[in-house]
């Protein structure tokens, strides 16, 4: 199963190393990691997309992250009301004939062309994972030369729907 986990961390030197090392050592499978500053100076937020076998494995991921001294807070936000976004840049081959077609394809995705060369265009798209996957699939037949993706970052929505069932692995209640 795929889980989205966030961690707020002290921005000490080596903290990213500590966390990626932990994932490797414990054989936690990560699809992506993003890191960036938060509203508090010296504190960063990381968002991980992890693939785990079962609920017990997620519990281990959360607990092992929590054990790190520089980690302030860890959340599995998969089942909460959240917004996730990722940015992708795609370099797609073009001919004079296909350029217009490509424009039509990317328009509903609200993607933009940010660079044009003789035989290719570079497209920027922002959205959740599925949206970006969908657009890539549609562009694949034209020949994608290069893809650069940031990985997903996530934030909880301002108002949360009530989630009644408590986490099955909570250890403090």
């Amino acid at each position: 199963m795929k889980r989205i986990v966030t961690a707020t961390v002290f921005n000490q030197s080596g903290v990213l190393n500590r966390i990626t090392g932990l994932f490797t050592r414990r054989q936690f499978n990560i699809e992506s990691i993003t890191v960036g500053a938060t509203e508090t100076e010296g504190v960063s937020k990381m968002t991980f997309v992890v693939h785990v076998e079962d609920a017990r494995m997620v519990e281990q991921v959360l607990k092992q992250l929590n054990k790190q001294i520089d980690v302030l807070k860890v959340n599995d936000i998969t089942d909460q009301a959240i917004v996730t976004r990722e940015l992708a840049l795609l370099k797609v081959m073009t001919t004079p004939q296909t350029r217009a077609e490509i424009n039509v394809i990317i328009e509903p995705f609200r993607a933009t062309i940010i660079d044009v060369a003789k035989d290719s265009v570079t497209i920027q798209v922002v959205g959740n994972f599925e949206k970006i996957e969908a657009m890539i699939e549609l562009l694949r037949p034209y020949g994608i030369k290069e893809v650069a993706r940031t990985g997903q970052t996530a934030i909880k929505r301002g108002s949360q729907r009530l989630v009644s069932e408590s986490k099955p692995f909570s250890i403090l209640n």
């Binding site: 281990q60 607990k63 092992q64 054990k67 250890i171």
Partner: peptide, 11 residues
């Protein structure tokens, strides 16, 4: 004392 040990190997 270490929550990460609980449930790690044995349910």
């Amino acid at each position: 004392i270490d929550p990460a040990e609980i449930g790690k190997n044995v349910e």
